[in-house]
Design a protein around this nucleic acid. Structure first.
Lengths: 349, 349
DNA sequence: GTGAAAGCGCTAACAG
DNA sequence: CTGTTAGCGCTTTCAC
């Protein structure tokens, strides 16, 4: 018989050391009732002494559940996602789940690859917060075997589960705010065409424009990043008939637009007002003071996990769970002026 | 015999469907050589048809390796960490590894809890990028059983593996830059006392001060966040004998300091120059233009993973792997002035 | 209360 | 080239 030291101890090692059977150790570990106090004490002592950790791998194999969920984000370096990731992790941890996060870069190829890995990994569910055109792929890959909840973007499918913000409403609030400030020529720097949330925001913008009898010809399709915003805004701002207000599809894009304005020498909001979407931490900084729409990221992430957990329960809900959170307008320096007329409906926190 | 549909197929199911043994399927899956072309074709067809994914849980159980590494960060909402996380993930994925990321909030308690979970999860290694006073705990918990590489902060232990930036040098460069610009009264907003990287930066600052015959009495202990920076800077800037230059322990803190300056009505850099550490994306934005020290986060994350992989190889290296990356000073508007004397050594990318 | 035995899905010798 | 046989570390009946 070989005595192997320093290897991480197994339940069998503990059983031997404690002079009991494997089943007994298992019962103690799982806080099962039918164990006498003295036995339990002996076992616990052995566990503590040997530094035993039950293998969740083995546990997962026998139970069929890995206590792990997957989180798909577009790009963790976009400040929106870390906030989401944190709330997802916190809520997952609260329920004993681990999170494997992956960046899809909004690429279908990448998503396919990642899904395959996640499935192989035996994850129990997926929170999909990325916005690429991968919905069918995702649903197909999972083949109804793995609970899935979309967040951040609302899926096409009417039977999918999701927790999203009302993007259209948010954008409408933003546009209305601008119109009430007296702006008549507004530009909207949209995200990529494939992003459903971006399209919803665009729709909100357009509806206000048309309701107000204004042109919505100043609409650009771009990325979700700073550079995209800067380039589009630069074109608009150095060209003829420039907009007096620009709304970005998200805060990052709007930050880029602000850069462009400053580089050109325009003042915000005096020469051009700016507003974004997401209400990232920086937006509220005195340095920036960006008017934005909060999607209540923390709540969104938390709810997404809660919904996923419901989905994983037995029996699974037979109706899809779909939640739409109300966004909140946050007015700041980038649009404020002395003539501002605050909408009472948007003054709430 | 019950026919269960819709369950995710196992290797046995595939074997049955393909009319071969389990081992054969296993060989095909693992791209093993000894399989005839026709057999392989049949098996692959079955795999494809059934949508079979090998269970990495089972694989992990038998092989003892989960192909998963843990990443400990302080707080993913600090922009430094997403960049690190992304490079870690990318490099890990390149080698077939998944990453489980956890936020420690620099709490020893939390770290303890997380480690226990990660170990139970059967991770093959850990990249520790958090900065709390948990070094002993971490090393004890792992009991030499799990490869570990520290990054971001340099550990006390001389036998630990790490990939870090030369924080002291970086801070020195920053301070020298300020001194050469003519500043004689400098303040350093440090991070918490428990953070080793923060202490190294402080040391660098102090050494330049003393070399230049200047006082380094203006040093504060604070958090790593914006609010910390703002509060400290505010005190200094409204008080008597205010500093003409402030260096923050990281960019977030410095952003807070900048907020304070603006709120008070001071101009940057005319009234007070500012510089930070990390060179987060925003630092280079035209909106901010913050002088900062780049730790080359991408390379750091990548190297950390590479080192970890080396550590996981058999045989394990008998010498600790320790790497110190050279930081780079990035000079921007927050310190620039017409009188600026550029250090040639810092002009490189 | 406690132990023995079967098996989760897979890999790794070892036979043929 | 292919199949058979042990387990990996655990949970879970089922006995005692």
């Amino acid at each position: 018989v070989m005595a192997r030291q320093s290897k991480t101890p197994t339940i069998a090692d503990v059983a031997t050391a404690a002079g009991v059977s494997i089943s007994t150790v298992s019962r103690v570990v799982r806080d099962h009732t039918d164990v006498s106090a003295p036995t339990r004490a002996v076992v616990l002592a052995a566990i503590d002494r040997m530094g035993y950790h039950p293998s969740s791998i083995a546990r997962a194999l026998v139970s069929g559940r890995s206590q792990t969920i997957g989180l798909l984000v577009s790009d963790i370096t976009n400040p929106f996602y870390p906030q989401l990731a944190k709330s997802v992790e916190r809520e997952a941890a609260r329920h004993g789940y681990r999170v494997i996060m992956s960046n899809t870069d909004d690429s279908v190829e990448e998503t396919k690859e990642l899904l395959s890995r996640l499935i192989a990994h035996g994850i129990d569910g997926i929170v999909h917060a990325s916005v690429g055109v991968d919905e069918e792929l995702v649903r197909d890959s999972l083949e109804e075997r793995i609970p899935l909840v979309f967040t951040n973007r609302r899926p096409q499918s009417t039977t999918a589960n999701f927790v999203v913000a009302d993007n259209e409403l948010g954008a409408r609030r933003l546009a209305q705010h601008m119109v009430q400030l007296g702006h008549r020529r507004l530009g909207f720097i949209g995200g990529p065409a494939f992003a459903a949330n971006a399209q919803e925001r665009l729709r909100g913008f357009r509806s206000v424009m048309s309701d107000s009898g204004l042109d919505s010809d100043l609409v650009a399709e771009a990325g979700f990043d700073i550079e995209s915003g800067r380039q589009v805004a630069r074109q608009w701002l150095i060209g003829p008939n420039r907009p007096s207000a620009i709304i970005g599809v998200n805060d990052l894009v709007t930050l880029g637009a602000m850069e462009a304005a400053l580089e050109i020498g325009l003042r915000i909001p005096a020469d051009v007002a700016m507003a974004g979407f997401d209400d990232i931490q920086l937006a509220s900084s005195t340095l920036i003071g960006l008017t934005s729409v909060s999607q209540h990221i923390d709540r969104m992430g938390q709810r997404a996990v809660q919904v996923l957990l419901e989905l994983m329960e037995e029996p699974a809900p037979d109706e899809p769970i779909q939640e739409i959170l109300l966004p909140t307008l946050r007015i700041r320096r980038s649009t404020e002026s002395t003539e501002v007329v605050r909408l009472t409906e948007t003054s709430g926190g």
